[in-house]
Design a protein around this nucleic acid. Structure first.
Length: 906
RNA sequence: GGGCAAUUAGCUCAGCUGGUUAGAGCGCCACAUUGACAUUGUGGAGGUCACAAGUUCGAAUCUUGUAUUGCCCACCA
C-alpha cells in the first residue's frame, strides 16, 4: 500500500472512492491472479450440482501423469477446456469439469527407480522389495499431485476440485476389478501364451502402441542353409531354426515339397530341417527363402501357428542366449552376434555380408529398452469376440468402437482423424493388458493350487495368492469418464454389482456421457480409443459425444520442446508470472487449429500481454470518464441504457454482432477465430474508434455497459483480467463475472453503424492525406467535404472529424466546388479537399493520384470484362451481378473524379 | 510400402459451403508523444496464394499430377 506523506494511510481510503485511481497504469497479473482464483474457488462456483435441472455439460480432464511438472501441452489442454466450460456455465448449463491425475504405471515407476538409482541404489526393486518400493512411489506421487494441483490453478482452470480423482485410488481400483471380472466372465479377457513385446531393460511387457521404431544401419548376412540361402540381420536367433519357409508358388523352389526334410550343417553342428510353404513369404525379398524363429518374431509365430510347428526359446528375459546356443549360452545377444557370424564364416557358411542394411529397431517408448519379442503367459483382451451388447446386437469390441464413430454417436474434431482411427481399429490385435511392473492395479485374479478365482474382491479363506502382474495403465484410464463419477462410498460395498454402482451414482446419472473430450491427437489410440472400448462395454454408454483434438506445441523452428534441451523449452510457470495466465492462454488458442501443431514463442505471448494491457487501460479510461461525470459504475443499471449519439448506436449494433459471432463461433468450437474476433473488436473498434470518439461526448453509462459486455464475452478466454476488472464495473447487485449469464439481444442499429463507418472512412482519408503531404502533426488544416448523399451526416459529425483529423475550418456541402490548390481524396459519393495554398507538394499529390488511378482502372476493367461476359451474366447469381454493377459505378465515379483532378493539376 | 496433413507478406498464421481490389499479429519504414495505454497512436511499404494441367462465366478455395516439408501406421526374414 502506498502511504501518503501528508495524510498517512487515510489516503488509501480517499483514493478508494475515486475508483479509477485504484487501477494501476498497467495490469499486473502477479498481483491479482492468485487472489482471483482463491475467490472463485471459495465461492463454490466450480462445484457442479447433480440435482439441478439445467442441461449438463461435462468435461473429464485428461489426467496429467503424477510424475511432476505441467508442461505446455497441459497448458493448452487446460486453456481449451476452461473456455468450453466457462462458456457452458455462462450459457446456463450445469457445467462440470472433473480434474484428476494418473498413476501412469510404467512412467512413474521409472521415474522413481531412476531417482533411487541416482541416489546410489543399485537395484531398487531387489533392495526394497515390492511393498517398500510401492510406498516410495506413492510418496512421490503425492508430492507431485500437489504440484500439479497448484499448476492447474495457475492456469485459471475452473474445475471442480471437490470431485478430484486419481486413477489409482481405492474406488477406481474397485471399478477396475469389476470391469476385469465382467470381461473375464464374458470371455473377453483370457490368459494365454502369446508373443508379446518384452522389454529386457525394464523387465516388462509393453503394448504394441507403446513401441517406437528407430532406424538403424546394420549388416545383413546371407548364409548357406542346406540347399538354400537365407538372409538375416539377426544370426543370434538362428540356433533353433529347423524350418525353411518359401512361397508355395515360387518356381525356383518348385521341386521342394511342403514337408520335405533335409540335413544341413549349421552353427553348432548338423540339423534336420523341414520345408514349409507359406504365402507370408515375399519371393522378391532376398532369396525368397527364410528360416523362422517363432519364439522371437511375430510373423514367424503366426506361420508356426498355421502349420503347428514347434517353438523354442532362444533368448532369455535378460537378453542372453539360452543353452540351445551351445558355446554361446549365457552371452548377451549384442556380444554374441559377431562371434556367431565369425563361426559361420569359418565353417564356410557365410555367403555374403551386405553392410548398410537399414532396418527399424523396436524400442520401448518409456525407458528406451530394445524390444525382444517373447512368448509369455499374459492376460489379453479379445477384441474380436462378438459378445458385447450394443444397439441390440452382439458385437465385438472392435465393431463397437467402429460403430460409434461411424454412426456419429461420437464426433471427432477435426474430422480427418476418423480415418486414422478406423485404420487403427482395422489393424488392432488382442490387447495385452498385463505388465510385470509393480506400480499399478493388480490383476484381480487369485490362485490356490489348481484353483483360480477372478473378482473384485479376494476369495474367502486362506492360502490364496494374487497374480503378481499389474494392469496396463490404459486399462484404468479407459474408465476415466465414468469411474470418476461413481459414488466413492458405494464402491466400499462389495455386495453391489457394477450395474448397481452405476445406477446408484447421482453424478454418473446426471453427467455421463460427458460432452467433450479434449486432448492431444497423440493419444487418440492410447487413450481415446480405449475409453471408447472400455466404456461402451462396461456402461453401455459412449464416454463422450465430441472428441476435440489439439496439436502439439512446438518451438519457433517447429521442433519439439524437449527437456533435454532447456533452451527450447517454454515453461508455463516461467511465463505466467511474467505475462499472466490470460496472455499465455490467448497465445496458445488464437492461431491454433484443432489437430494441427502450433509454434509458440515469447514475442507471441508478449503480444497478447499487450492486448490485455490495452483492455486494462481502456477500462481505466472509462473509469476516469465515470469519475468526471460523477457516475458510479456500481449504479449503472444492468438493463440496456438508451444510446445517445450516432457512435453510441453504432457501438450497440457492433456489440450485438460481436455477441452473435462469439456465440456461434464457440458453439462450433472455432476457438481461434472467436479469439481473434474479440481481439480485433476491443482494439480496433472499441479502443481506436469508439473511445476516441467518446472523448468528445462521453456517455459514461453506455461506456460502463460496453465494458461489461466485453468482459463477459472475453471471460472464457481471459478469466483473470476480466474478473478483476469486473469488480470495477459490475452493478452493485451483480455476482462474480464467472457466474454472469451469457447476453442475449438483437442488433438494431445497422444504419447508424454504416454511417459511422462512413465517418471513419472520412477521418482515415484525411489522416492519410496529412501523412502523405507530411503536414506537421499538430497543424490544423482547412477541409472541404462535398457529398450529395452524406452531407448531413458529415455536418452532424463535424466535431469528431475536426478533432480526430485535426481539422480547423470545415466546409461541408452537397455540391462540389473547385479547389485548385488542394490535396484530394474520393470516397464513394464523397469528395474531400484539403485546400492548403503553398503547402501542397503537387508532385506527391500527383504521384499518389496516379497510383490510385492505375489501380482503379485495372479494377474497372476487370469488372467490365466480367459484366460484358454473357456467360457470367447468365450464370452468376443475380445478387452478385448487382453487387458488381454498383461496385463498377462507384469505381467509375471515383476514377472520373481522380482523372479530372489529375488534369487540373497538370 | 500405405495413409494424413501442410505449402498464402521477412516471421507466425486466418481465409468455413468457389464470387474479397487476398487479411491479421509481429517485424520493417515515416511521423507523433507530458492527456487511458510506448505493453502507445497515426500513416505506409510488402503477396504472380509451392508448381503444372484441368473443371468452371469465375479458383487461394474444387479435381488430377509434381515438388518440398512434417506426422501417423505397417515393418520383410
Amino acid at each position: 500500500m502506498w502511504i501518503c506523506p501528508l495524510f498517512g494511510v487515510h489516503c488509501a481510503t480517499f483514493f478508494a472512492r475515486l475508483g479509477a485511481q485504484m487501477l494501476d497504469k498497467a495490469y499486473d497479473p502477479k498481483a491479482t491472479e492468485d487472489d482471483i482464483y482463491a475467490m472463485w474457488e471459495k465461492s463454490g462456483a466450480f462445484i457442479a450440482d447433480n440435482t439441478s435441472t439445467k442441461e449438463p455439460f461435462t468435461i473429464s480432464m485428461p489426467p496429467p501423469n503424477a510424475t511432476g511438472q505441467l508442461h505446455l501441452g497441459h497448458a493448452v489442454m487446460l486453456a481449451l477446456e476452461d473456455i468450453f466450460i466457462r462458456f457452458a456455465r455462462m450459457q446456463g448449463k450445469e457445467a462440470l469439469w472433473v480434474p484428476g491425475t494418473d498413476h501412469a504405471a510404467i512412467a512413474t515407476e521409472n521415474v522413481v527407480i531412476k531417482k533411487l538409482k541416482d541416489e546410489g541404489m543399485k537395484d531398487p526393486r531387489k533392495e526394497l522389495g515390492r511393498e517398500a518400493l510401492i510406498a516410495k512411489i506413492a510418496d512421490f506421487v503425492e508430492k507431485s499431485q500437489d504440484t500439479i494441483r497448484s499448476q492447474v490453478r495457475k492456469m485459471g482452470s475452473s474445475c471442480d476440485w471437490s470431485r478430484e480423482a486419481y486413477t489409482f485410488e481405492p474406488a477406481l481400483n474397485r471399478l477396475v476389478n469389476e470391469v476385469f471380472a465382467k470381461m473375464y466372465a464374458d470371455g473377453l479377457i483370457y490368459r494365454g501364451h502369446r508373443i508379446v513385446n518384452w522389454d529386457p531393460k525394464l523387465q516388462t511387457t509393453v503394448s504394441d502402441d507403446e513401441i517406437e521404431w528407430k532406424e538403424e544401419t546394420v549388416p545383413f548376412y546371407t548364409f548357406q542353409y542346406g540347399p538354400f540361402q537365407i538372409g538375416t540381420s539377426r544370426p543370434e536367433t538362428k540356433f533353433g531354426d529347423k524350418y525353411v519357409v518359401m512361397h508355395p508358388e515360387d518356381e525356383r523352389y518348385a521341386k521342394y515339397k511342403h514337408g520335405d526334410t533335409f540335413d544341413a550343417e549349421w552353427i553348432n553342428g548338423p540339423v534336420r530341417a523341414t520345408v514349409i510353404k507359406d504365402t507370408a513369404v515375399d519371393p522378391a525379398f532376398g532369396t525368397g527363402v527364410m528360416t523362422i524363429t517363432p519364439w522371437h518374431d511375430n510373423a514367424d509365430f503366426d506361420i508356426a501357428e498355421r502349420h503347428g510347428l514347434e517353438k523354442e526359446q532362444v533368448i532369455d528375459y535378460d537378453g542372453k542366449l539360452l543353452p540351445i546356443a551351445g558355446e554361446f549360452a549365457g552371452q548377451h545377444i549384442e556380444k554374441a552376434r559377431p562371434l556367431i557370424v565369425e563361426k559361420l564364416a569359418a565353417k564356410g557358411l557365410l555367403v555374403k555380408t551386405e553392410e548398410n542394411y537399414v532396418h527399424n529397431k523396436a524400442v520401448n517408448q518409456r525407458g528406451g529398452g530394445t524390444i525382444e519379442p517373447q512368448i509369455k503367459l499374459q492376460w489379453f483382451i479379445d477384441v474380436n469376440k462378438p459378445v458385447v451388447e450394443w444397439k441390440g446386437q452382439k458385437m465385438s469390441l472392435k465393431e463397437v468402437m467402429h460403430d460409434v464413430v461411424h454412426h456419429g454417436d461420437i464426433t471427432i474434431i477435426p474430422e480427418r482423424f476418423n480415418k486414422t482411427y478406423f485404420h487403427w481399429i482395422d489393424n488392432l490385435r488382442d490387447w495385452c493388458i498385463s505388465r510385470q511392473i509393480w506400480w499399478g492395479h493388480r490383476v484381480p485374479v487369485w490362485y490356490k493350487g489348481e484353483e483360480t478365482c477372478v473378482g473384485a474382491q479376494p476369495p474367502k479363506g486362506a492360502g490364496w495368492e494374487q497374480d503378481s502382474d499389474t494392469l496396463d495403465t490404459w486399462f484404468s484410464s479407459g474408465l476415466w469418464t465414468w469411474s470418476t463419477l461413481i459414488d466413492k462410498k458405494l464402491t466400499e460395498d462389495f455386495s453391489l454389482s457394477l450395474q448397481d454402482l452405476l445406477s446408484g451414482s447421482a453424478d454418473y446419472k446426471k453427467f455421463h456421457p460427458t460432452t467433450v473430450m479434449e486432448t492431444g491427437y497423440d493419444i487418440l489410440f492410447f487413450w481415446v480409443a480405449r475409453m471408447i472400448l472400455m466404456t461402451t462395454y462396461a456402461t453401455g454408454q459412449i464416454p463422450f459425444k465430441t472428441v476435440y483434438l489439439h496439436g502439439l506445441v512446438r518451438t519457433r523452428d517447429g521442433k519439439k520442446m524437449s527437456k533435454s534441451d532447456p533452451k527450447t523449452m517454454i515453461d508455463p510457470l516461467d511465463i505466467i508470472p511474467k505475462y499472466g495466465a490470460d496472455a499465455l492462454r490467448l497465445s496458445m488458442i488464437v492461431g491454433q487449429s484443432p489437430g494441427a501443431d502450433s509454434k509458440l514463442f515469447e514475442e507471441k505471448i508478449a503480444g497478447y500481454r499487450n492486448f490485455i494491457n490495452k483492455l486494462w487501460n481502456a477500462s481505466r479510461f472509462v473509469l476516469l470518464q465515470c469519475e468526471k461525470a460523477e457516475v458510479d459504475p456500481a449504479n449503472v443499471p444492468q438493463e440496456a441504457v438508451a444510446p445517445k449519439s450516432l457512435a453510441d448506436k453504432a457501438l450497440c449494433h457492433e456489440l450485438s454482432l460481436l455477441r452473435d459471432d462469439v456465440t456461434s463461433g464457440l458453439e462450433a468450437s472455432r476457438l481461434s477465430e472467436v479469439g481473434e474476433r474479440i481481439y480485433a473488436f476491443v482494439w480496433d473498434y472499441f479502443c481506436d474508434w469508439y473511445l476516441e470518439l467518446s472523448k468528445g461526448e462521453a456517455n459514461p453509462e453506455l461506456l460502463v455497459q460496453s465494458i461489461r459486455r466485453i468482459l463477459v464475452l472475453l471471460h472464457p478466454y481471459c478469466p483473470f483480467v476480466t474478473e478483476e476488472l469486473w469488480k470495477q464495473f459490475k452493478h452493485a447487485d451483480a455476482d462474480m463475472l464467472l457466474r454472469q449469464p451469457w447476453p442475449q439481444d438483437n442488433a438494431q442499429f445497422p444504419k447508424e453503424s454504416a454511417q459511422l463507418s462512413t465517418v471513419i472512412a472520412v477521418i482515415t482519408a484525411l489522416r492519410s492525406i496529412r501523412a502523405d503531404q507530411e503536414l506537421e502533426a499538430g497543424k490544423e488544416i482547412p477541409v472541404a467535404i462535398y457529398s450529395a448523399e452524406h452531407a448531413e451526416l458529415i455536418q452532424s459529425q463535424s466535431e469528431h472529424i475536426q478533432r480526430l483529423a485535426r481539422v480547423g475550418e470545415l466546409t461541408v456541402g452537397a455540391k462540389p466546388k473547385k479547389h485548385e490548390q488542394a490535396a484530394s481524396a474520393f470516397l464513394p459519393g464523397i469528395e474531400i479537399h484539403v485546400p492548403l495554398e503553398g503547402l501542397i507538394d503537387f508532385e506527391k499529390e500527383r504521384a499518389r493520384l496516379l497510383k490510385e488511378q492505375e489501380n482503379l482502372s485495372k479494377f474497372v476493367q476487370g469488372i467490365e470484362a466480367k459484366l460484358s461476359n454473357e456467360q457470367f451474366v447468365s450464370k452468376a447469381p443475380p445478387a452478385l451481378i448487382e453487387e458488381q454493377k454498383s461496385k463498377l459505378a462507384e469505381a467509375e465515379d471515383k476514377l472520373k473524379k481522380i482523372t479530372e483532378r489529375l488534369s487540373s493539376l497538370s
